[in-house]
Design a protein around this nucleic acid. Structure first.
Lengths: 130, 130, 130, 130
DNA sequence: GTGGTCTAGACCACC
DNA sequence: GTGGTCTAGACCACG
């Protein structure tokens, strides 16, 4: 899987990498159980300090997206059954609220907005069928 | 309009205030042309330094949400006709993509997701009818 | 002569009025010796606090654009023979330098720039012929 | 590149610095892609608070003159292709109008004025040839 | 070490 | 009284 970093973005590098890995899992580019490169390897590949990659993996592990095996290194969690906590739902609603408000005020209709969502979801793998 | 700040949040205070003001405009709690409190007044009201409010107003002005009138102070832009630039659309798609991916992996269905969107949009004022 | 104020401009109101009066003198809309309205009159006309008008007239007087007669009030200086001090030349060059630099970097050619200057000067009255 | 600040000037310090940086870009003293000092470094060098430099860089970034790279820090925008918006042209014309009017009334001929412009433009680098 | 954020106090220009 | 500017100190996120 290819990662592309925008070093001039306002989004921190570690956040960009995290986002792309999570997107990769959702779209099936990264399969449960698949190994990820070592921190040094990935850092060298995309030109990022390995401490930054370390931070990425640590956070992904804490959030349950990956597991760390003593031997194989970091791999995508083979049993991805994240709970939908109330905290997460609050965060999701809050994020959607401000994004939707801005989109609305910029003249984007609900239909257009939902159409975008629809496109995004259509890229995700079908659970259970893979 | 009431503003509530979470001082423990990771989201910067100025960002929280900005978000709530934009939401307020979208939901009609703040009407175009309506005056906002002075930087010192609002700062005192919600217990933050007035420089922080100044930053909020400065950014809102630069982004076109409010205008600064030499006499009435800061007011919601009476002519809110934001253009939907390509830059903005890219940002919106990018934001929705990662949010949707996470939601999907946490077991939230597309239907549930769209339902949340629907609720948010239903709170926004109908343009032209108010 | 009509004055138009933009209350949402970043340029202070008193500066806008000063500018327009000076432009008026240069273009002949205001003739040397012509009377200007009283501070209260002008203030009421354009919807501005008369203290602000007072500041305008005071500065215009200090800079030699107008004279104050005990009876007739404020009038355009009948003998407009401003010296071109070195201080003024330095200020002028400094102002032009940054304006030209920005225009240049925004892709405006020297020819286009000079053409704009040409248009502006063509609006000014011919000295001695009036 | 050397910056000189006049602490007695009416022009805000941050504006003086901004102006000199933009002039530096136009004259080629600063090349596209060139790194600028850190906010603290530059602040220490010229004896102003680093927050003031921060404001300068923030505005230069918003206006597109510089980009902030996560590793090299702040650098002159390598792709300086500013658009000449109608807003900018209006501002430019307005600025030139009042400057020209004053110069005219102070006895500066159009020829002298254009000569000054000519000198300024001759200092700018030739685009594409450097 | 870098920039970003928040707080704070002081002064000034403007209205 | 309003916003704008400058200084300053502290803490944090980032790389």
């Amino acid at each position: 899987m290819l990662l592309s970093i925008d070093f001039e973005s306002e989004i921190p590098i570690y956040q960009q990498i995290k986002n792309q890995i999570i997107k990769g899992i959702a779209t099936g580019q990264l399969s449960p159980g698949e190994s990820l490169p070592s921190v040094r390897q990935l850092g060298a590949d995309i030109g990022v300090n390995f401490h930054t990659i370390n931070k990425v993996y640590t956070q992904l592990k804490q959030e349950g997206w990956v597991v760390v095996h003593r031997r194989q290194g970091v791999m995508v969690n083979p049993e991805l059954n994240m709970e939908t906590t109330q905290d997460y739902m609050n965060l999701l609603e809050s994020n959607l609220e401000i994004i939707a408000a801005q989109a609305y005020l910029r003249g984007i209709s609900k239909e257009k907005f939902i159409q975008i969502i629809d496109e995004k979801f259509s890229k995700f793998i079908k659970k259970g069928s893979e």
